[in-house]
């Protein structure tokens, strides 16, 4: 058998696809199925452990057994596209939202998004301050064309559920007394001192920041409700920390 075919069949077996293992001409101290199961288990266990590390609140909410099933389905459905595992899991929230088995926990996908956002924010080591001097150096016409920026790994979330309360409740192992019908808007941002910080937002603030994240110009942004109020607030609190010139 050619090497390419052998490797394809080997991988198909890891992914639970039907393969005639006898064709691989494997030998060893145990039956072929058991030898192959060592590789298969290692594949799922290592990626499941990695996902567990990225999504601790999801794991706490659903329990180890269900998390392992979720992870396995995700691993099979979402190939690891790079040897560098670092970005694997970015679609886990979307995956949770798409499957029937999590319908009874409608906030779970949002919690996964928060877990992921927190995990990513931890890796940010530098957060720039707003460049007021550079802004002042632009002409008025140039200023109208700038596009505001938020720090890398900023996450904006809108949910029909009180995600932040649930997420913090999981951390404290206490979910009692949370009003599950409370819709919530929030922002998560990296922080040099605390890994990540969370702010609850009003609907109007959320809309403003969402608009900024689409990359529209200051001239267009000026038409949004409470523009000046929001801009002052978010630059003042370092939620907006930069801009790009219109032609970038």
């Amino acid at each position: 058998m050619k090497l390419a075919e052998l490797q394809t069949k080997f991988c198909q077996h890891l992914l639970h696809q039907p393969v005639d293992l006898s064709a691989l001409n494997i030998t060893g101290p145990l039956p072929v199925e058991q030898l192959m199961s060592l590789y298969r288990n290692n594949f799922y266990v290592s990626l499941t452990d990695y996902l567990k590390g990225c999504f601790p609140s999801v794991n706490a909410l659903v329990g180890e057994e269900f998390f392992a099933q979720l992870a396995k389905a995700f691993i099979i459905g979402q190939p690891l596209a790079n040897a560098n595992i670092e970005l694997y899991g970015a679609d886990f929230s979307e995956f949770i939202d798409s499957i029937e088995q999590t319908r009874s926990l409608p906030y779970l996908a949002g919690i996964a998004a928060l877990d992921w956002g927190f995990d990513r924010a931890k890796g940010v080591t530098e957060i720039a301050s707003f460049p007021f001097v550079e802004l002042e150096q632009l002409t008025e016409q140039q200023q109208l064309q700038i596009r505001f920026q938020m720090p890398a790994e900023t996450l904006l979330l809108a949910s029909d559920y009180p995600l932040l309360s649930i997420w913090q409740g999981v951390k404290k192992d206490c979910l009692e007394g949370i009003d599950m019908d409370l819709a919530e808007y929030l922002i998560l941002q990296p922080s040099v001192t605390e890994a990540a910080v969370f702010y609850p937002l009003s609907a109007s603030q959320y809309k403003f920041l969402s608009t900024i994240s689409t990359g529209i110009s200051l001239e267009q942004l000026a038409d949004t409700a409470d523009f000046q109020l929001h801009l002052n607030h978010f630059i003042g609190n370092a939620v907006i920390n930069g801009f790009t010139a219109g032609d970038e």
């Binding site: 090497l3 290592s46 690891l80 596209a81 040897a83």
Partner: peptide, 21 residues
Amino acid sequence: WSSNNSRYFNDLLPVPYTQES
């Protein structure tokens, strides 16, 4: 080896010791 058809397996998988390999 750890990849097949651009999919990675996060493991160090065994190589047959043949001339082709």
